[in-house]
C-alpha cells in the first residue's frame, strides 16, 4: 500500500513535470520558428550569391562580407551609427537626469509638469518624425531667419553635415521621457537622512550629488545606457521617415542599409551579410556595456 502511494506520487510528479515542459512550449516553438530559423537562414544566405529573386544561387563563402566591408557606404554607415550612439547615450542620460532632478524639486503643478514631460513617449516614432520633418522644413528656418541665426535659417535636414544632429534632436525630444520617469523613481529611493547627515558633515552640493545621489542611481543609469546603446545602434524609424538616408548617404544607418540593400537594390546576400555584422556588433557592445555597468554596480553598492 505504501509502495502504491509512492507510485501514485511519482506519477503525479512526472505528470507535473510534463505540464511544466508544456508551459514553455508555445514560446519556445514561436521563438525557434520566427527567430532562430530566420537567423540561421540569414547566415546561410550571407554565404551565397543569391539576389532574393532568382531560382538558382551558389555558395560563395565569405566574399559578401569582404565586399561589404570594402564598401565605403558600409563604413560610412558604421561611422554614422558610432557617432549617433555615443551622442545619444550621453545626451539622453544627462538631459533626462537634469530634467528629473528639476522635476523632483518642484511642488507647484508637479503632476502637470510630469504628465506633459512624459507625453512624447507615448507617440509613434513615425508620427513624431513626420511632424518634426515639417517643422524642420517650414517652421524652424523661419525662426532662424527672424533671429538672424545663420545655421538655423536653412533646413538642418537638408545639409549633410547637420542632418545627424537634427535626427538626434528629434530622438532626444521623444527619447528622454521614459529615462526621466525612471530617474525620478530612482531619486525618490534615496533616503533623505543621508543628505541631512552629509550636510551636517559639511559636504557641498556637488559632493552630495556625487557621493549620495549617483550611487543610488547607478542601476537606473545602467539601464538607460544599455537601452540607449541598442537604440543608437539600431535607429531606423526616424531616419526612414525624415531623410531616408539622405542627403546623399549622410544619414544612412546600418539598419537602413540592410533595408535598402534587400528591398530596393536587390543585393539580398549582401544585405544579410550586413545584418550579420550588425548582430555581432550589437551583441559585442551589449556584452561590453553589461560588463562595465555590472562592475560599476558593485562599486556603487
Amino acid at each position: 500500500m505504501f509502495q502504491q502511494s509512492i507510485n501514485k506520487r511519482k506519477r503525479k510528479v512526472r505528470k507535473g513535470s510534463r505540464v511544466m515542459v508544456g508551459f514553455t512550449l508555445p514560446v519556445v516553438i514561436l521563438y525557434s520558428l520566427f527567430f532562430l530559423v530566420p537567423l540561421l537562414m540569414g547566415f546561410y544566405y550571407s554565404l551565397t550569391n543569391w539576389n532574393g529573386i532568382s531560382k538558382t544561387y551558389k555558395i560563395v563563402g565569405f566574399s559578401n562580407y569582404v565586399k561589404v566591408i570594402m564598401n565605403p557606404r558600409f563604413l560610412n554607415a558604421i561611422w554614422f551609427n558610432a557617432r549617433y550612439m555615443v551622442l545619444l547615450v550621453i545626451l539622453v542620460t544627462v538631459v533626462s537626469l537634469v530634467i528629473a532632478m528639476a522635476l523632483n524639486r518642484t511642488k507647484l503643478c508637479s503632476t502637470l509638469f510630469r504628465s506633459i514631460y512624459f507625453v512624447p513617449a507615448i507617440l509613434s516614432l513615425v508620427t513624431v518624425a513626420l511632424i518634426w520633418n515639417e517643422l524642420f522644413y517650414r517652421v524652424i528656418p523661419v525662426i532662424g531667419q527672424q533671429l538672424g541665426i545663420e545655421w538655423l535659417s536653412t533646413s538642418l535636414l537638408g545639409n549633410p553635415k547637420t542632418a545627424i544632429y537634427a535626427i538626434l534632436a528629434v530622438n532626444l525630444w521623444q527619447g528622454c521621457s521614459i529615462p526621466t520617469v525612471l530617474f525620478i523613481a530612482g531619486l525618490q529611493s534615496v533616503p533623505m537622512e543621508l543628505y541631512e547627515a552629509a550636510t551636517v558633515d559639511g559636504a557641498g552640493r556637488w559632493a552630495r550629488f556625487k557621493n549620495i545621489t549617483v550611487p543610488f542611481l547607478i542601476p537606473v543609469i545602467n539601464m538607460v545606457i544599455i537601452t540607449q546603446v541598442k537604440a543608437g545602434l539600431t535607429v531606423f524609424d526616424y531616419i526612414k521617415a525624415m531623410t531616408d538616408g539622405g542627403p546623399g548617404h549622410a544619414t544612412e544607418a546600418i539598419g537602413l542599409l540592410v533595408y535598402k540593400y534587400s528591398m530596393q537594390e536587390n543585393k539580398y546576400s549582401q544585405s544579410v551579410a550586413v545584418a550579420m555584422i550588425l548582430f555581432v556588433i550589437v551583441g559585442m557592445i551589449s556584452l561590453i556595456t553589461l560588463r562595465i555597468t555590472g562592475d560599476k554596480q558593485v562599486e556603487g553598492d
Partner: peptide
C-alpha cells in the same frame, strides 16, 4: 534574443 537586434533577422524573415 535580447542581444540580437530585429534588423539582423528582418530580411530572411
Amino acid at each position: 534574443g535580447i542581444f540580437v537586434p530585429f534588423q539582423a533577422v528582418m530580411v530572411p524573415l
